[in-house]
């Protein structure tokens, strides 16, 4: 018995939209969202708003905080303090925790390689057809932990950098 027949048998009115007659199964449940809109203008408008804000931010920042240019490169420098860009902070901080030959190779190369391999393999590590972060807690917790570790490492790096003598 389809939904329509059931509705009819129970004395309810047929659904307003004929599209809802489609029988929803495990296979096709994610074929089409409940509510859709045309890509143009709905999504394009929102994308445009974000893009415009970003461009304005870039323009304002390029005068408010001009792109940095330190002194010319000097291989014989002894008083320069090298610092990575902020998006490498967490990685740089991680290197502090791995002293000695074997551990440096482990921390600087092996761990990131394993992490990247895991990233590539992610769709096959988490295959259950469940999408909500609440309903797959293990993956969500791992993801939150990764973000937490990255943020904490960045925080450590920032505190180390601002506390460095002469900075």
């Amino acid at each position: 018995m389809t939904d329509v027949q059931k509705d009819f048998a129970q004395g309810r009115a047929a659904p307003a939209k004929p599209k809802d007659e489609e029988v929803i199964t495990e296979e096709n449940v994610f074929d089409r969202p409940d509510e859709t809109m045309g890509f143009f203008p709905g999504q394009v408008y929102k994308d445009g708003v974000v893009a415009t804000l970003l461009l304005i931010a870039c323009t304002v920042l390029s005068y408010a905080a001009p792109a940095p240019l330190a002194g010319p490169a000097d291989t014989a420098s002894v008083d320069y303090v090298p610092r990575p860009e902020w998006f490498f902070f967490f990685y740089e901080q991680m290197l502090m925790f791995f002293p000695g030959y074997a551990l440096i190779a482990f921390g600087a190369v092996a761990i990131p390689t394993v992490f990247i391999v895991l990233l590539f393999a992610l769709p096959w590590l988490d295959r259950a057809p469940v999408y909500s972060p609440v309903r797959r807690p293990f993956v969500t917790i791992v993801g939150v932990l990764v973000i937490f570790v990255v943020l904490m490492n960045m925080l450590l790096a920032v505190s180390r950098i601002i506390n460095f003598p002469g900075q």
Partner: peptide, 29 residues
């Protein structure tokens, strides 16, 4: 050489809190 054996940052000479001198790499200490 002033190139740190860890990751190649320029090494400097500093005097620490105990008044002892030491070479310090500013990158990872």
């Amino acid at each position: 050489s002033n190139s740190c054996a860890h990751l190649g940052c320029p090494v400097r000479w500093i005097t620490n809190v105990d008044g002892e001198g030491e070479f310090l790499c500013p990158c990872h200490g």
